[in-house]
Amino acid sequence: MVYAVFMLLVLLTLAAAWRGPALELPLFLVTVAWVLVHLVLDMTSPLSLSF
């Protein structure tokens, strides 16, 4: 489900960009930060993402 949430955030960022720039960049940065944290947490713990 976490990946669906990431994609939902992409769609929300797109909708924000369509309506006006106010929310677009904050949403984009939140998504990037969350994806980065998800990747780094996986790298610093026993393998769980992929083989």
Binding site: F6, M7, V35, F51
Partner: peptide
């Protein structure tokens, strides 16, 4: 796999640039 999906998410985020 999860890393493949992460790469798809990154591709989507990349596209937000030209769409902006």
């Amino acid at each position: 796999c999860p890393l493949c999906v992460m790469q798809r998410v990154a591709l989507m985020l990349v596209a937000l640039g030209p769409l902006h």
